[in-house]
Design a binder for these strands. Structure first.
Lengths: 365, 365
DNA sequence: TAGACTACGGAAAGCGCTTTCCAACACGTT
DNA sequence: AACGTGTTGGAAAGCGCTTTCCGTAGTCTA
């Protein structure tokens, strides 16, 4: 029925050319686009042959011959984490608009894996790489990542980081610090005076920055954050749960807890609920994860435009540019909701009511 | 400082060979693995040269030369949807274990895009493709997908679907129908007698099957499901929200609502809450999305092992096999939680209490 | 010491494309 | 009739690898 291609299984351009009775060069020009013109009659013949044979150009071979690919890479920590899947969604949207395929690597929060994947994407000659996910305080891993990214760019690719400004590479710098600072300001504004922080992993810069920013905000408001009111834990729902229990176990009485991201905050609320404390202790998070929009009580958080971040990252790196690294700041906005109702003042006063959708003023710096 | 590669930017194997003073063949054998042995001394020299030059093999060229790739494709509807990101996580885990890269395409719930992406992955000569996400009732789109998948397999790749058994291709058949049927059985067992269904998009087979199964279960229990108690809507949180409002607007009084997936269920609960009905109307979902574990009230649902499904799918297709398509059935298990407390009987009786973690018996058929 | 292997480096032939040359041909000028 | 000037098809030279095939040396047996 069908002329099977040679040994490799797939139909090749040569098969098509032969069937159409033209040369390889002509077939290539007719099918895979070229500056050169081909007489309509011949082009049609070639296209028909390709259709007959169900021909699909070998993208790898094209890449080798053309010296460029249609693949971009995206390195995340964990694709199952909504933070990253939102970023991925944004990046993929832009990729689609540009006819690119996206190779996603999930590094499982291991810096070494991350570097390994960047290397793999370099081998694939990806046109661009987006590296989402926090750096850590591991100077050595950072240096190795830097080397790898550098090699990638030297070999003609373009990379962009999302997170901290730590390498001389295009970066979407997430304003974790100022976001957390603003949040602290708003929370103290609601009347809270004693705080706890569920701080995430020790070395993770995103967590570190958010903690630092929050502490800074409290300090400015003249509120102290004692050392043992800070509990480190995994950057996950279960991490937040455990950290909350640990915080309570330390016997501190806190009015309000800041979990450095939303999934931890949800875990914290769950922990409080099992103890019947969900109305006693206020909880705030960070990120404004969409999927978590319906938890009760609605989460006070710092909204990050994650999808947009993914889009911007890829766009940035696809756009031609002049050599030196660009740094673009992404600022979140504080969104006050029911999870931090505010402390009941001596005499009644309006309290930061729930805002069903993020509308708070943008923070800056 | 560093000998830049030729025009294309990247260092080539030839550069390495020259620097090591060996032939291209030897360099290839030393670096990129081969059956042939290379004297240790020479191998070391080559490796050193590669290191000096920061060489990274061109995977595309290797793919062309070897006739196979290290890339597998994953086609999903929407990577931001936790259903798919969990499947992706599973698939990526297996990919990592096998040294493969994963190209993910997000088809945005458009069947045409899906086909287009399969075609793109065929061009990339992906070793395997996992197509997650429901088929639709569009016979034409199904046929085109079939053709494309067939062409892919004929050209040497292997494909696996997740969802319905509708094509002669390896498939993980999700037991939507029986899962929904079991759910109906359990819910009627709790005493509910009047139901509504938020049914998802009309043509989406996953939604259709779940609706059909649920109706079947009710019928078996002798409970009627009137036509206008079924409201179709988007397969999303907002779709569930809107459908719930519509159902209420129809003036039907229902004791229990089945949303054909969890995200819709969450939307429904949100809608009920704004009307103060969250304790009046019970809600059940389907999927048991992890991220939604902490919504209040905890969701009764049918648990699907999504990560495992992703793993199994890729493993299945990576494993050699004998030609004819394999179909593997995935059954979920009903998990009763607080969102369906059961109707209060005339005299007190134990009510299906919340189960913090899925433990219900597995359904079958 | 001949004969038979075995080990291992290099030349060169692919892999499936793109793209540069080159040649043939058709026109329009002068 | 001679001469540009476009067009357009084909041959062949890449692209960066792998792998076959060949040849030289060294090792082992009898």
């Amino acid at each position: 029925m069908r002329t099977m291609g040679a040994k490799r299984g797939a139909v090749t351009l040569e098969d098509v050319a032969r069937r159409a009775g033209v040369s390889l060069a002509t077939a290539s020009r007719a099918i895979n686009g070229s500056a050169r013109k081909v007489r309509p009659e011949i082009r049609e013949r070639v296209e028909q042959a390709a259709r007959d044979l169900d021909y699909a150009a070998n993208a790898q071979a094209q890449a080798v011959a053309r010296g460029r690919t249609d693949v971009v890479g995206l390195v995340v920590q964990d694709i199952e984490d909504p933070y990253f899947s939102s970023i991925a969604a944004g990046a993929m949207r832009v990729a689609e608009a540009n006819g690119l395929m996206v190779c996603i690597a999930s590094a499982g929060r291991r810096p070494d894996k991350e570097i390994e994947y960047v290397a793999a994407l370099r081998r694939m000659r990806a046109a661009a790489i987006v590296i989402a996910g926090s750096r850590t305080d591991d100077r050595d891993a950072l240096a190795r990542l830097g080397t790898e990214v550098d090699a990638f760019e030297r070999s003609g690719g373009r990379a962009v980081l999302i997170g901290q400004r730590r390498l001389p590479v295009d970066t979407l710098v997430v304003a974790n610090r100022s976001g957390a600072r603003d949040l602290a300001t708003r929370l103290t504004g609601l009347g809270y005076r004693s705080f706890g922080v569920l701080a995430g992993p020790r070395g993770l810069l995103t967590a570190v920055d958010r903690l630092a920013g929050f502490a800074e905000g409290l300090r400015k408001a003249g509120v102290a954050l004692s050392r043992d009111a800070v509990v480190h834990g995994e950057f996950t729902r279960d991490g937040g749960h455990a950290a909350m229990l640990e915080l309570l176990a330390r016997g501190r009485s806190v009015e309000c807890v800041f979990a450095v991201n939303d999934v931890m905050a949800v875990g914290a609320i769950a922990a409080l609920r099992t103890l019947g404390l969900e109305r006693t202790v206020a909880v705030a998070g960070f990120d404004d994860i969409t999927t978590l929009r319906d938890v009760i009580p609605a989460l006070t958080t710092v909204r990050l435009p994650l999808v947009e971040i993914g889009e911007t990252a890829l766009e940035m790196v696809l756009r031609e540019h002049s050599g030196r690294p660009r740094y673009q700041r992404i600022v979140g906005e504080v969104v006050l909701r029911e999870s931090t109702p505010g402390v009941r003042p001596a005499h009644p006063a309006p309290v930061g009511a729930a805002e069903p959708l993020p509308t708070g003023p943008a923070s800056s710096t």
